[in-house]
Every structure is written in structure tokens, then in C-alpha cells.
Write a protein that binds this DNA or RNA. Structure first.
Lengths: 124, 124
DNA sequence: AATAAAAATGATAGCTATTATCAAGAGGTA
DNA sequence: TACCTCTTGATAATAGCTATCATTTTTATT
């Protein structure tokens, strides 16, 4: 399942996700690949995003406004979602770690989201 | 937009969501209403869930496994999502409050999620 | 009660992000 | 070359959800 073969397109998608801080959607990645690969298909983008996520090279931030957003930064960090423009920003502090053994729950990771208005949207 | 009229179905949906701790999906609410209202439509469930959420009487927990999950408990609390069976549990501690003024972001609320395996799924 | 206005409903069609399918293509290996 | 596996583009299909609309129910007013 792990990406074993060479795939210039998958490499380019990964590289783009590492460069960018916008937590793009599949559609956005697709659009931003068209300059380099004019004939790339949306299916290829979805497939490669899924493979990269399975390989642990990227993360899925979550679904906002009906679209899944991806992150090339796999480190533990919180996210801020602007409810006005839909932008997703990194938010410094890592989510709190929970003691794994409580009540029989095996906690593997956590995600912390802040919601509100980003500087652009509240005119600051 | 706020629910002004009496609607036995909307009332029943709200009552069910207050009783239950399973954070049900629209589909589940629909199914669980069919005994009391055999002719209820899925559209009615979606419409009433949206109205109840807009009125602040219920909350949307998030989208997991492609389905939006709802919560009749509108108090601030974290959630645990079982990645094996999809169950959503309340998780006692409230999410940390973030200082609202940082860097021009207006933070209105936060959501904290834990992911892992629930007691049923890890055999405890 | 009678009537009119507003809201709610069931049925159904439509939308959209995502996934599955499949034949053709590219790259590696012997 | 032949063979194998992975990848790709095109396209069809899926699923959760939303919009539409004619009919019914509820509320307000007289």
C-alpha cells in the first residue's frame, strides 16, 4: 500500500503540500498542479492524497465547508478555522495530551480546533 | 428562521437528541423516529436538525466517516471518536480556552477531539 | 367559527465531494 | 524482448445532503 514506485505527480503533490501553509483541498491541489502537469486528472490527485496520507507523509486536517483539507506538516499542532472565509491557519499550541489509560479508551491522537474570524475577515 | 411554530416532529427530534448519548447522524435520527412517525421524511429530519442547530438547541459535533454527527448536549466538552467502530463518546474535559486577542484572530469557540479505540473495540 | 397568512411536511429531483472502475501507459527487471 | 507492477486519465457511480414544490398543518385575526 505504501507508495513504492516512482511517481512524479505524487512527488510534486507532496512537495507542494510541504511548501504551502494554506491546508489546501483536493480541488485546490488539482488546480495548482495544472501548470506543471496540464493533463493531470482530479482522480489522480485524490488517489495520491489518499496514498500520501496512508503513508503518513501528510495529514488530513478535517472537513470544513464540505471539503477535506490537507496538511503537509505532520507535526502536532492546533488549527484555526475562519468561519467567514474558510481559511485554515496553524495555531501554535499543541493539543493537550490525554492520559491514555482512562476508562478503557485507547487514545492515539488528538485534534484541537479554534473557530472564529481570521485577521483578514475581522479587519485587523 | 427560529422555530416559532409547534412541530411535534421537531420536538420529538430534540427530545431524542437530549435523551441519547450516541451523537447520532441524521440517518440514525430518521430511523429512530419511524416508530413514532412512520411517514416521516428524511428531508424533514435534515431540515429540523438544521433549525435546531441554528436556534442553538443542539450542536454539530463534526463529520466523521462522511456523516455529520449531532449532540443534544450544548455544553462545552470534548469528544472521543473511535476509529474502529465510529462511535462518538463524550470526553469529560472541556477544551482549553484560548486568549481571544492573539494576532488579530477572533476566537469564538474551540473543539477538542480524541481519536483512538473505544473500550468495546480494544476488548476492555 | 371562518378566513387568511405563515410554517411544516413528504416526495422527489438535484448537487457535489469523493470513490470505484477500467483500459491504456510508463517504468523497472530479467 | 517479454513480463510484471504501479500509475494514470476518463468516466461512471456513490452518498450525504440540499433545494424545490404542491399539499397539509398550525397560528393569527376577525
Amino acid at each position: 500500500m505504501t507508495a513504492r514506485n516512482n511517481s512524479k505527480k505524487r512527488d510534486a503533490i507532496l512537495r507542494r503540500l510541504k511548501e504551502v501553509r494554506t491546508h489546501p483541498s483536493a480541488e485546490y491541489v488539482y488546480m495548482s498542479m495544472k501548470s506543471e502537469f496540464p493533463s493531470i486528472s482530479l482522480g489522480t490527485v485524490y488517489r495520491n492524497l489518499a496514498q500520501l496520507r496512508e503513508a503518513g507523509l501528510i495529514k488530513s486536517v478535517g472537513i470544513f465547508g464540505g471539503e477535506e483539507r490537507f496538511d503537509g506538516d505532520t507535526s502536532d499542532h492546533a488549527h484555526f478555522i475562519c468561519e467567514s472565509c474558510g481559511a485554515v491557519h496553524d495555531f501554535g499550541e499543541p493539543p493537550p495530551v490525554f492520559s491514555a489509560a482512562s476508562d478503557g479508551f485507547r487514545v492515539e491522537r488528538s485534534e484541537l480546533f479554534y473557530y472564529g474570524s481570521c485577521p483578514e475577515c475581522c479587519g485587523g
